[in-house]
Design a binder for these strands. Structure first.
Lengths: 266, 266
DNA sequence: CGAACGCTTGACATTTGTCAAACGGCGTGG
DNA sequence: CCACGCCGTTTGACAAATGTCAAGCGTTCG
């Protein structure tokens, strides 16, 4: 299945020279190619004919590194690009005026982020790296033009937006109708499925986020999250130590997640 | 401003012969025209050049009536159409296996519904009319084709999907980070803004949904909603009797809604 | 090696949910 | 047109879940 070594490497940045960057916004840019990317079938190029792939390659003109703790997009930034996550792990969140934050999602390789900004021409979420990450930059204007010529790209982009809507609606069910433990079980199963879809173990992985970030995502306090994990452990559902989790009894976890089968999509 | 007469008419169906229809799915179809529709600038045709409007007219090939209590789309239905709400009022909700329901949104004239189905080719929400309604049916396949030729339509459709994402993210902030009273104040202000955007009073309107539906939407029980309204009334924030609400002190309501300025979009 | 940060756990407070009863408006049928 | 019954709403008393505050511990990173 998976050993500690692989776990460490799960979403680590690809090897390459580490450039210096400013304290907030990060990263020197270099060219990237969808046609050579291992995330092809999770990301924008999905379903594109090989013949059209070179059009897509021109779309994605650069990559950028974002180091742990750095911000890729700040809520309020003008909307110009979409970002395809090539490696690493991001969180997105919105803030109220009084400083309260609500984590909206955790993003991993193959996810596209940023299209919430289309409507108002400004981004509405902040995107921050939870570990060193690499993103492909897609000029939205170019995507629009190419999509009008490549129906499969058009379709895939619709799909990805639609999937985000469905994902959020699952999260709403979670926040609006589920108990603390149900939420936590659903959260773990969701992460598990997503790691599995990327070729990693569904039974063992590292959490990239703090208890507080999990709590914000699930609408709970960090203490409730901590206690929840402890109780899961007492019951033999999971084995958890700090950020490292093993899911020991998926069936029971699923039943604990209640009506829902482990969150939705993404 | 607005009188009782107007309130009654707010989103009532247009005059016309009432056809018979089955107990569940409703409605005889007839042709419709975007170019003659008063919801033009809230809906798909927004920003389209007059010259292109006839292309859009061909897109929307029929309308359909949905009577109060009837279901327009059932979760699980195959995805083929989008629906533009011409008049009336709908709710959309998702259900867990154990029967719990989470209301995801309330929809009024000018809203487009159904695009959550694009990703999986099946609808994931159920859409039910809270009052007699009329919808315009848009074959998604046609929309795709026309959008590739009319950039403004493409753009507007992106915007509407993006807006839905932003709307949901506002709802998540509400469900995950706000107290019962904050949620309720935000809810009222959101309805107020949306009625205002459609030319109705922002200070006085009829709720189309039960306390239970409001509760489901806000992640609360119907009793908590009822008590909340009562307390708002005691404090002079609102005047409420059954489904009829007057917002008496918008400023205080906004402060009660806390960090957020009355929900997001739509 | 030390400080800062994240995590755990306990005691207690508060919010919200649950259960129950009663009211009232509205629509239906007599 | 009126009476009855149903459904939605209100309100109360109580229970349970989760949040708050506080202390202490372990890890990790500089």
């Amino acid at each position: 299945m998976l050993n500690a070594e692989m776990l460490r490497e799960t979403t680590a940045p690809l090897a390459g020279s580490m450039e210096r960057c400013g304290p907030e916004r990060a990263g020197q840019a270099w060219r990237a190619q969808c046609s050579a990317c291992s995330m092809q079938n999770l990301c924008l190029p999905r379903g594109i004919q090989p013949g059209d792939l070179k059009l897509i390659d021109e779309l994605v003109y650069t990559q950028r590194r974002v180091k742990r703790g750095q911000t890729l997009i700040e809520a309020g930034d003008p909307f110009r690009n979409l970002y395809g996550l090539r490696s690493g792990f991001l969180k997105s969140f919105v803030s109220a005026e009084d400083g309260r934050e609500q984590v909206i999602g955790f993003h991993m390789a193959g996810d596209i982020v940023g299209f919430e900004g289309i409507d108002s021409d400004r981004h509405s979420r902040t995107l921050t790296a939870l570990e060193d990450s690499e993103v492909c930059i897609v000029l939205f204007h170019n995507l629009e033009r190419t999509a009008a010529r490549v129906p499969a790209l058009q379709r895939q982009f619709y799909r990805m937006m639609s999937r985000e809507i469905v994902r959020e609606q699952g999260l709403m069910m979670l926040l609006g109708a589920m108990s603390a433990e149900e939420r936590m079980a659903a959260f773990l199963l969701n992460l598990s499925r997503r790691f599995a879809a990327r070729g990693f173990s569904q039974h063992e992985f590292n959490l990239r986020m703090t208890r507080e970030e999990i709590g914000s995502y699930l609408g709970l306090t960090l203490e409730t999250v901590s206690r929840g994990f402890s109780r899961f452990q007492e019951r033999g559902l999971i084995d958890i130590k700090q950020r490292r989790v093993k899911l020991l009894d998926m069936n029971l976890l699923e039943r604990t997640a209640g009506g829902r089968k482990g969150d939705t999509a993404n």
